[in-house]
């Protein structure tokens, strides 16, 4: 690890000033990835800017319209530790509660997990299934990007130099809907997804037909991907095993995985089908149980 400066701006303006001072910067929104990368000489910087002291990035707001704003540096444990959030957005807790162990979750944030832009990141498919929108700020103002369009490749996002991810917004979720996210890992904790799937299932008023769906997959392409074909395959159908199996097939067809030390391409193509089907089954159960 090379030596670098550590900065802890108290305001966004201070952060933008630091980002504009001409030095090579990295941002810290928890540090559970970036510190490891620096220590192992996989990344380097002149200054590390700690975003955890900026109030906007540490705020959580359950909006009056039923949406949820999560500051980009809010620790995961603060999300699943919040009873209202845990009750109303269990699909977020699915992701927040499995990224690392308790110590990691007390530091790590959705914003950091997104900006690290790992194709296997647990937050991405869950947030994509929710239809989350990201607010990005720079000295010049703010812009919004749907989380589906945030990733540009392994370790790369659309975040430009001088920009900071400000918050993750979960729009109000439809009635009779539920999100479920899960991943496959060989162990039962402390692992990286071999493949993962997040789905949102929305039933029609009768409760017998699927009104709409969103299907997002992780670790099967250069970025997390949405699979519209899997959603289309179930819309208008009864929420039963045969229907979910079609979504699974579509997910498998859309996956373009690689073979690496965490799993083979064939294994991942197979797994996303299994995970998509099971995610739909769990989401249906959530709706039925009124969660």
């Amino acid at each position: 690890m090379e030596s670098f400066e550590y900065l802890a701006p108290r305001t966004l303006a201070e952060a933008f000033a630091a980002l504009g001072n001409g030095k090579r910067s990295l941002m810290l929104a928890g540090g559970t990835d970036v510190i490891v990368q620096l220590r192992e000489n996989r990344r380097s910087c002149d200054q590390l800017i700690d975003l955890k002291h900026i109030p906007e990035l540490m705020a959580v707001d359950i909006r009056a319209d039923g949406g949820l704003d999560i500051g980009a540096a809010v620790p995961l444990a603060e999300l699943y530790g919040n009873r209202d959030i845990a009750r109303r957005w269990p699909g977020l807790v699915d992701a927040a509660s499995i990224i690392g162990g308790r110590a990691i979750q007390s530091r790590a944030s959705f914003g950091g997990n997104l900006c690290n832009a790992s194709p296997a990141a647990d937050s991405s498919p869950s947030l994509m299934a929710h239809g989350a929108v990201l607010t990005i700020a720079s000295a010049g103002g703010t812009r919004t990007v749907p989380v589906d369009e945030f990733f540009a490749g392994p370790g790369r996002s659309v975040l430009q130099p001088g920009e900071v991810l400000l918050r993750v917004s979960i729009p109000p979720q439809p009635a009779r809907s539920a999100v479920f996210y899960h991943r496959f890992i060989p162990r039962n904790e402390m692992d990286i997804a071999v493949a993962s799937a997040g789905v949102r299932l929305v039933l029609d008023e009768s409760g017998d037909r699927i009104a709409s769906a969103r299907v997002a997959l992780g670790a099967v392409a250069a970025t997390p991907i949405m699979v519209p074909a899997a959603a289309e395959a179930v819309v208008g159908q009864a929420p039963v095993a045969d229907t979910f199996a079609k979504a699974g097939e579509a997910a498998s067809a859309a996956a373009q995985p690689i073979t690496d030390m965490r799993g083979s391409a064939a294994q991942r193509k197979h797994l996303v089908s299994v995970l998509t089907v099971r995610a739909f089954e769990h989401a249906l159960q959530r709706i039925r149980e009124g969660r």
């Binding site: 060989p186 904790e189 990286i192 690496d260 965490r262």
Partner: peptide, 29 residues
């Protein structure tokens, strides 16, 4: 028996050289 292995590439580099990817069982396993 069930998860641990040294994964080498053709050039002889170990690809899973961390406790994250060298999968020893945890208490939950």
């Amino acid at each position: 028996a069930i998860n641990e292995e040294y994964v080498y590439n053709a050039e002889g580099r170990m690809e899973n050289s961390s406790f994250l990817d060298y999968r020893m069982p945890t208490a939950l396993d």
